[in-house]
Design a protein around this nucleic acid. Structure first.
Length: 271
DNA sequence: CCCGGAACCTGAAGGC
DNA sequence: TGCCTTCAGGTTCCGG
């Protein structure tokens, strides 16, 4: 499930090979992924456009094009963007972007939940996202200010893209474990010390995961097909029934807002 | 504003 | 073995 570290890895891996290249066409096997414009217009307009730079905002991957427009992708649950031409015949390759060096960018997405936009202004897609957690301008004081506004469980708030951009289920669990905070803690009940712990935990967890090229939990892999290794560092996420690496207590999983929250009931007390 | 639930998807996993 | 149900989860939308 591509979250911030996985999309950041895609951005870095793809930038060296794709910046300066131009799209020669698109094959849409799953046109419903295209949000705007219409699939026909999407294919016509993208053809001939060249990539000026590749960026990331939250969990969105942004191709900034030389004509000022932006091709924006969101991978949701199962999407990935692959370079190897062998993916042309993969039944889960939903859409293919053909590039002027003869190569292709293969949008592989078994669950068909990923989304694609071609827009004159990328902010129509990503404009409502909260701050980037790794932006130097985002401080612990900012996190404290934001947190006062929410009474919902901290786990749910961390996953809310209007609060912070790019954190999903896995990294919210990891950050809360690293900060020794129970996922059900009311967000506005955090002390200044707890906010500071959480702030440092978020940044440490995300930076470490980027250093490990993201987590290959389900269908994600790097553009070259190699898996990321960040999942091997997980202490709580997706580890239900396994021992906490700190204290040995069995990791539990509870539903919060229809999603699984993994945590150590000993290290992350709800009080 | 807040919250819960459904919808979108399909492979995996569990029950009987 | 096999059919059927449920679950996973990011985002948006809808209703209370």
């Amino acid at each position: 499930m591509p979250e911030l570290p996985e999309v950041e890895t895609m951005k870095r891996d793809l930038s060296s090979m794709m910046v300066g290249r131009c799209f020669t066409g698109v094959t849409l096997h799953w046109p419903r992924a295209v949000q705007t414009p219409s699939p026909e217009e999407f294919c016509n307009r993208l053809q001939g456009l060249c990539i000026k730079e590749i960026d990331r905002r939250g969990k969105y991957l942004i191709f900034r094009l030389a004509n000022g427009e932006a091709l924006v992708l969101h991978f949701r649950m199962s999407g990935s963007l692959l370079l190897d031409s062998r993916n042309a015949s993969d039944p889960y390759t939903r859409n293919t972007f053909h590039v002027d060096n003869g190569a292709g960018l293969y949008f592989r997405d078994p669950r068909k939940l990923g989304l694609i936009w071609l827009v004159p202004d990328e902010n129509t897609v990503v404009g409502k996202l909260g701050p980037e957690p790794l932006d130097p301008a985002f401080t612990a004081a900012d996190l404290g200010e934001w947190s006062k506004r929410y009474s919902a469980p901290i786990k749910a708030v961390l996953c809310d893209q209007r609060f912070l951009a790019g954190i999903g289920n896995m990294y919210a669990d990891e950050a809360l474990f690293a900060a020794s905070l129970h996922p059900l803690r009311a967000t506005n009940s955090l002390s200044a010390d707890e906010v500071d712990r959480l702030y440092r935990a978020i940044r440490r967890v995300l930076e470490e995961a980027i250093g490990n090229y993201g987590a290959s939990i389900n269908d994600y892999s790097r553009p070259n097909g190699e898996p990321g290794t960040a999942q091997s560092m997980f202490k709580a996420a997706h580890r239900v029934g396994k021992p906490c690496p700190v204290c040995g207590t069995i990791i539990e999983r509870i539903p919060i807002r229809q999603r699984g929250a993994y945590f150590c009931p000993n290290c992350q007390r709800n009080s």
